[in-house]
Design a protein around this nucleic acid. Structure first.
Lengths: 276, 276
DNA sequence: TCGAGTCTGTACGCTCGCGAACTGAAAGAA
DNA sequence: TTCTTTCAGTTCGCGAGCGTACAGACTCGA
């Protein structure tokens, strides 16, 4: 159960420092791995903007005015019921983009999307983006693979939501977030987490308390820190590994060169091992 | 609460008899609404095959050899956990296709797919299908909208799985199935339903019992019948309406001309009414 | 330094759904 | 017919998570 290799530099926010080959400065994988010409065409229209905590990126059933390529922080796609209860159905970070429906020829969002961890990102006007897709079908094709990975994550989430317990789900979720923001500590209130997991705030307190007492995480007034990643992974449900494997899949298919928690080399082996 | 118009011919499996304009003989909306040339190119390679109950269409993590366009019956995409627990993450019928990843450039399924209600459908070899997509980008684009609708359904399901109770979910699910097979009665064991909803079999018995006593459904040894659709809709969670609105969305965008439960004209109004 | 606002810990009764049985009933085969 | 198999109904104790409420603790700004 214990991996011999140092799977991840613990506690070091933004551990990677090696610049990526070509378009590394952009700090968003979907932009970085764009064909050179497509990127060139986009560049003049890319606007780097801050993503501030809680900001509503998309309102449900409203047209998509622009797409977002985060470079830091985290965007959550959230489903809201009539009675106000909510739950997360998608997670977007520097390894992805918000505004996926545009890739499928649909011009509005069905769910709302909001900034969950502050950061920054590039925006691109919907019209221009659509143009780019037409102009560079290889890029469009690349991005469609990303859609598949999002679908896959959603399928896992759908199952996880039903079949697993709060504590495991919390562990899974924290790990996923950590992977995506490439840091072991980040700002999050329990209230917020509860919204994402679709449980009571008090439920999160309880679950987080257990994880904290066990020394897996450290939680203090909005600041969350993963202390023992190994054991937190053990505490998470299988969905974490499954999701991570999917991401890796995507990365290798796209020729991306990511670094960090979601990309430790043993994942692939694990996933393959349990496939049979 | 009661609609004046006869929203649906009750108890008559396959109630529609009016042939659809052009490619109506095909009985699958995604085929029927294909551009004429694309369809022509596909036709020689389409094989009409029976879909027999329980048949495994796709195994998880295996390459997609062929895509399926059902013409009757129902295919479920199911997520299975290590411990054997399962839950449905997608529903495919004559209004859709199985093998969506191919549309996104991914050549294997992440989840398994199986026949849940016997029927029939067309198969098309993956290689040929991929060719067609390249050759007819308009058709590919059309199908991508279908992907969006599947994603949307999945998002709803993910939320529903977490936030709603067995009884409402059962009602929703039965209605969805009924819409898709275009019949108010069909064969289903409680065991099977439990698998789809991700609950115990006994849980389904209980929920189904309540619905039956209330006179909404009629359930007898594998045969399921919707008795009072109106009230069953009222018993279902909001997710049913939401999903139905999405489907309608898709149909109108694609210029499809479907008939049956999912398409009663009042749906649009309802959906629009609650959008604000 | 104090107070307002925000976030977290905890408690209590309750409901839903679980796991694990066992019984009964229907359908199909011999 | 009788036997076997499959499906449905029901029970029981149990645990997870809910809704609600309140108290404590931290933070920030006045």
């Amino acid at each position: 159960m214990k991996t011999s290799k140092p799977a991840r530099k613990a506690n070091s926010p933004r551990a990677q420092g090696t610049p990526r080959p070509s378009n590394a400065l952009l700090e968003n994988y979907l932009l970085e791995s764009a064909p050179a010409k497509a990127l060139e065409a986009m560049k003049p229209h890319l606007q780097h903007v801050p993503l501030s905590l809680g900001h509503l990126i998309y309102a449900p059933m409203k047209p998509i005015r622009e797409v977002f390529f985060p470079t830091a922080g985290l965007i959550s796609v959230v489903a809201t019921m009539k009675d106000g209860s909510t739950i997360e159905v998608g997670l977007v970070s520097k390894d992805g983009m918000a505004g996926v429906p545009l890739l499928l020829g649909v011009e509005f969002m069905r769910n709302e999307a909001m900034v969950q961890i502050a950061g920054s990102g590039y925006t691109l006007k919907a019209g221009i983006f659509t143009q780019i897709l037409k102009q560079f079908p290889e890029y469009h094709q690349m991005l469609l693979r990303y859609v598949d990975s999002r679908m896959s994550q959603m399928a896992i989430t759908a199952a996880c939501n039903r079949l697993h317990h709060v504590e495991e789900r919390l562990a899974r979720w924290l790990l996923s977030v950590s992977d995506r923001v490439e840091s072991d500590s980040f700002f999050l209130t329990q209230e917020f987490v509860a919204t994402m997991l679709g449980v009571r705030r008090a439920g999160v307190t309880l679950a987080a308390g257990i994880l904290q007492k066990a020394g897996l995480i450290d939680y203090r007034r909005g600041r969350m820190r993963i202390v023992d990643r190994e054991r937190l992974e053990a505490a998470a449900c299988e969905c974490y590994e499954a999701g991570r494997a999917d991401l890796l899949e995507l990365y290798s298919a796209q020729g991306m060169a990511p670094s960090g928690g979601a990309r430790s080399s043993r994942v692939k082996a694990d996933a393959a091992g349990q496939a049979g």
